[in-house]
Design a protein around this nucleic acid. Structure first.
Length: 568
RNA sequence: GCGCCUGUGGCUCAAAUGGAUAGAGCGCUAGCUUCCGGAGCUAGAGGUUAUAGGUUCAAAUCCUAUCAGGCGCUCCA
């Protein structure tokens, strides 16, 4: 309909003598906020006012005089500063119900993606501890963005990058080993500064003990150390290959737990990509070669640097340290090169906002490697500040002092947790009060939406029980002439546009807001009007309206990743 | 110090591309059930959109400065 109105305006403008070089993109047609202002409006007269040196009201009048009559437009009005408001006929409004009935679960889909391959990487938490509440936001967000992209016709793959190499895994292994020693000999007691201290470490140690018995028990060499790296060296030397076994077992153990948590949170991945696979010497050398060929690399102080300051970054970054170890950055470049080589044109990363300093260098290296073959989009999600009442909770994986994601959704429910995470704009800092989320779970807005769905289901259940007839009759839809009914019809027809905007802007909260508003319209309608007691034609029309609402609630809930219960 | 993000009723948040009277929930006040589910509905109070300028026919939205908060500024991962 908007497109139609836009065309009418373009045609009209072409007939006006003063208008030359019309930029059609300039013409905006928006939904009117207020019913008195029609269904759609345009501000084009205001915009052209300066260019043409004329009063906007006069321009609006010119447009109005030249506009073609359209059967779907009841009337057109000009308002104060120069808006042109369009009032559509009721017929076009009823159409939406037929559209929803015929498209069913496809209603709202579009094809802006045109089947383009997209790789979206999210969560990617290090396998050094369980997922905490902060990760939950990224998980819910990434999953919802994936669903939105799918709905908009992209071919989406979801990936989790597993950082199973590097120093943090060594620290994990050391932490496990020391606990393992303590388990075997209760006289042993080690200092744990700088190591992982959560209870889950004990679990892993117990698991190792159960599986390998005393195989790795060599505590003689160890002295308490303040330095984490000393610990690592001592234990690595005393255990030899055994250390690699512990590293792998520990990371696998945690990864298994992470997978399970995500599964329970209804977040699934198409692939789990291991850092260990990408960090072979040939691989990393290849990357350095490519970058040197583009003259983006230099040696300085015994290290190899990426000259990212030539791009948008504030300074150069080390790729290979003077001790020949590669940096995390280099393996990350290699990983992203791999993404490009796998043929993805659109690559999306969802990161915690604490990584924002990393964005510039990543973009710089990516652009060199992709050479315009692919596009990288890094979306930042602000971490939640956790509170318990007024008390801020420090979130340190090391100290093991955190609320896990699993604890959260066991407490408030998966649906509520996902809904809660997605309600907010991602760049918004949010204070997540655990007590509030837990204690007020029954007041969570997700129930409001689910209740709307359950109520509609309940009506249809009654219909069946009382053997009341219902047929969807197109001709009866004109009986939906109450103000509340027209409001709902307008809302329904907005849905596809909301999907499109939410996808384009990567903002799922727009969809959340939408279904809350739709639910609100429904609840108010439900309280004011009776449905089953009405005579047949009106009843039929109203039931069709309810089915349309139900369909949209279902379609949206699948994208958000929550359930729509038939009763609650 | 430099960079990125944020600042909207008592609290937590919305506001599509700069558009018309800044909206919800919680809390507060007053009401609603002879009839489809009261996890609901109706009405009300509560705002100088951090502050000061600027651009514009039009600013919560764009620009500048200031104030306040968060995060990042390792040959860390």
């Amino acid at each position: 309909m908007k497109e139609k109105i836009k065309k009418l305006i373009i045609e009209s403008l072409k007939k006006i003598d003063d208008v030359h070089d019309l930029d059609e993109d300039k013409i905006e047609v928006t939904n009117s906020k207020n019913k008195d202002l029609g269904d759609f409006s345009t501000n084009i007269a205001l915009k052209l006012s300066k260019e043409l040196g004329k009063n906007p009201i006069d321009i609006a009048k010119d447009i109005l005089n030249n506009i073609k009559k359209d059967t779907y437009i009841k009337k057109i009005e000009i308002a104060k500063p120069g808006f042109i408001n369009f009032f559509t006929t009721e017929d076009i409004k009823f159409e939406i119900i037929n559209t929803i009935f015929s498209q069913k679960d496809k209603f709202g889909k579009n094809n802006i993606g045109n089947k383009e391959k997209v790789l979206i990487e999210f969560v990617s938490a290090n396998p050094t501890g369980p997922l905490h509440v902060g990760h939950g936001r990224g998980a819910a967000y990434g999953d919802c963005i994936s669903n939105l992209l799918n709905t908009s016709g992209y071919s989406v793959s979801k990936e989790y990058y597993v950082n199973d190499a590097g120093r943090q895994i060594s620290i994990l292994a050391v932490s496990v080993i020391l606990r393992y020693y303590e388990l075997i000999d209760e006289n042993l007691k080690f200092k744990f500064s700088g190591l992982y201290e959560g209870d889950y470490i004990w679990d892993i140690s117990a698991y190792i003990l159960n599986k390998y018995n005393n195989k790795f028990f060599k505590p003689e060499s160890i002295e308490d150390s303040e330095e984490v790296d000393e610990y690592i060296n001592i234990i690595m030397n005393s255990l030899g290959d055994g250390f690699e076994v512990i590293k792998k077992e520990s990371a696998d153990y945690i990864l298994k737990d992470i997978r399970k948590t995500l599964e329970e949170f209804n977040v699934s991945f198409d692939s789990w990509f291991s850092e260990n696979k990408i960090i072979s010497n040939q691989n990393l050398k290849k990357i350095i070669d490519i970058l040197s060929n583009k003259e983006c690399v230099e040696e300085k102080d015994g290290a190899i640097w990426f000259k990212s300051s030539d791009f948008s970054d504030e300074k150069d970054r080390v790729l290979v340290k003077a001790n020949k170890d590669h940096t995390y950055f280099l393996s990350d470049i290699a990983y992203h090169n791999n993404k490009i080589e796998r043929g993805y044109k659109k690559i999306i990363n969802i990161w915690g906002a604490d990584h924002h300093g990393y964005v510039d260098r990543m973009n710089a290296s990516f652009n060199i490697l992709s050479n315009n073959r692919a596009e990288l989009k890094i979306l930042l999600v602000q971490f939640a500040n956790l509170y318990r009442g007024k008390q801020k909770i420090p979130m340190s994986t090391r100290e093991g002092n955190f609320i896990t994601l699993k604890e959260l959704f066991n407490e408030v429910g998966v649906d509520a947790a996902r809904f809660f995470y997605l309600m907010r704009k991602t760049e918004q800092h949010l204070d997540f009060d655990i007590e509030l989320a837990k204690s007020k779970s029954s007041e969570n807005p997700v129930y409001y939406v689910q209740y709307a769905h359950a109520r509609i289901c309940s009506i249809f259940k009654q219909l069946e029980e009382k053997s009341i007839s219902y047929t969807h009759n197109v001709d009866n839809l004109k009986l939906l002439d109450k103000e509340e009914e027209v409001d709902i019809l307008n809302k329904l027809s907005n849905y596809p546009e909301i999907i499109e905007t939410a996808t384009r802007k990567f903002e799922p909260h727009l969809l959340i807001n939408y279904i809350r508003e739709l639910s609100q319209l429904f609840h108010a309608y439900y309280n004011k009007f009776k449905i089953l007691n009405e005579e047949e034609d009106i009843r039929g029309a109203r039931l069709s309206l309810l089915l349309s609402i139900k369909q949209i609630l279902n379609n949206a809930s699948k994208i958000i990743g929550i359930k729509m219960p038939n009763e609650m």
